[in-house]
Computed example of a mutant assay.
Amino acid sequence: MSMEHARQHQPLRQPDRQRQVKVKVRKTGWISTGEKVLYSVATAGLLAASIFLVQFSADTDALNRDIRSLETDLAQQESQNENLAYQVKELSNPDRILRIAKENGLNIQNAKVKQAASVSN
């Protein structure tokens, strides 16, 4: 072998001070894995609380609307009951009863007609 050939196969040595060492640089994120888990749990909790609050508000609003509707129905029923009570008083007037009895041929002799306040069994 010749010297030239031997030089080609041998690596050239560089002086120690010019030798470069490759170092792997590991990049770290600005948020660690533990912080990511904590943030995810906190976000899920906040989302669940928001959904619960909206659902609770919707249910409360629906109940309030139902209450208002029932109060309106109650007021109408009370008005109808008062009208019917007034009609009962008018129809149970003793003079009216006597007049209708005479029109239908009923003869009343010395009888007093009284208005019944309530019916008892």
Rank of each mutant, 00 (worst) to 15 (best):
D59Y: 06
D59I: 03
D59G: 02
T60H: 04
T60I: 10
D61L: 12
D61G: 07
A62G: 06
L63W: 05
L63D: 02
L63V: 04
N64V: 12
N64R: 10
N64L: 15
D66P: 01
D66Y: 00
D66W: 02
I67V: 13
I67L: 13
I67M: 14
I67T: 12
I67N: 06
R68V: 02
R68F: 02
R68T: 01
S69N: 09
S69R: 08
S69E: 10
L70G: 00
L70P: 00
L70H: 00
E71W: 02
E71F: 03
E71L: 10
E71M: 07
D73T: 03
D73R: 08
L74A: 09
L74C: 12
L74N: 15
L74M: 10
L74K: 08
A75Q: 04
A75W: 02
Q76E: 15
Q77G: 02
Q77R: 15
Q77W: 03
Q77K: 07
E78W: 00
E78I: 00
E78D: 01
E78N: 01
E78Y: 01
E78Q: 01
S79G: 14
S79E: 13
S79H: 07
Q80N: 08
Q80T: 13
Q80W: 06
N81Q: 03
N81G: 01
E82M: 12
N83H: 13
N83K: 11
L84V: 09
L84A: 08
L84N: 09
A85N: 11
A85E: 10
Y86E: 14
Q87W: 07
Q87D: 05
Q87A: 14
Q87C: 07
V88T: 07
V88E: 10
K89Q: 12
K89C: 07
K89E: 14
E90K: 10
E90M: 10
L91F: 04
L91Y: 09
S92A: 00
S92T: 01
S92V: 00
N93L: 07
N93P: 06
N93F: 06
P94T: 04
P94N: 03
D95Q: 03
D95V: 01
D95S: 03
R96Y: 09
R96L: 15
R96G: 05
R96K: 11
R96P: 06
I97F: 14
I97H: 04
I97C: 04
L98P: 08
L98I: 11
L98E: 14
R99T: 14
R99A: 12
R99K: 14
I100Y: 15
I100K: 06
I100F: 13
A101Y: 02
A101M: 08
K102N: 11
E103C: 11
E103R: 09
E103M: 06
